[in-house]
Amino acid sequence: MLELRLVQGNLLKKVLEAVKDLVTDANFDCSSTGFSLQAMDSSHVALVALLLRSEGFEHYRCDRNVSMGMNLNNMAKMLKCAGNDDIVTIKADDGSDTVTFMFESPNQDKIADFEMKLMDIDSEHLGIPEAEYHAIVRMPSSEFARICKDLSSIGDTVVISVTKEGVKFSTRGDIGNANVVCRQNTTVDKPEESTTIEMHEPVSLTFALRYMNSFTKATPLSSTVTISLSSELPVVVEYKIAEMGYIRFYLAPKIED
């Protein structure tokens, strides 16, 4: 039996909006530590890792570790029916082949039950090493989303380079090329508007912009985004989920042949 009650139901709504276009079907794993998901897109170029820690739920009952296969589009359709201020509860009985999403309005005057069929999805979990990254950029998530959107109107790949000057996003295409340089800026009145760059050594990697634009659908989850780069690893684009966990997108680089 599992029953997870999330007072900030809109977090789950935003999570589904962030992943439903990247991954179609995925297993949600439920254990005593929390509610998580790890899945690759169909081309195995990107991977999304979600963690919602059990402490972040108002009520978290998970009698035994369980993995529930869900179609994320269908799940998103059901969560769209939840109000932004609704309390969302995820319920499933042991051995059941369905999961129920319950939406309660803040003043408890409306309660909705949406039951969805579960699927059998055989997915292997990948080992993601905790790595030392050559460069870690923290910046406003809206700014990162704007840069990815703007550059994708010029080219389809972005070179992200971190030097002591700052972080540079470059692209080129038929009509020309574009460079956006962001410098460290901590003299802002609101911390979430600051850009900080931690560089251990210069790094420069090339990525497909369409995946980056897909990742920025998670922008509503956090005012800041963290981009961690290392020359031998996929980039990690991370959005923290308020006091609950995170959603991390890993993107494999394009390698000069």
């Binding site: 690759m40 170029v45 991977l47 979990h125 990948l126 090493p129 996929p234 494999a252 394009k254 042949d257």
Partner: peptide, 14 residues
Amino acid sequence: GCNQSTITEFFGKL
């Protein structure tokens, strides 16, 4: 040109 690598080239199956 640039060849797109895949995640599974970097992260092994558990």
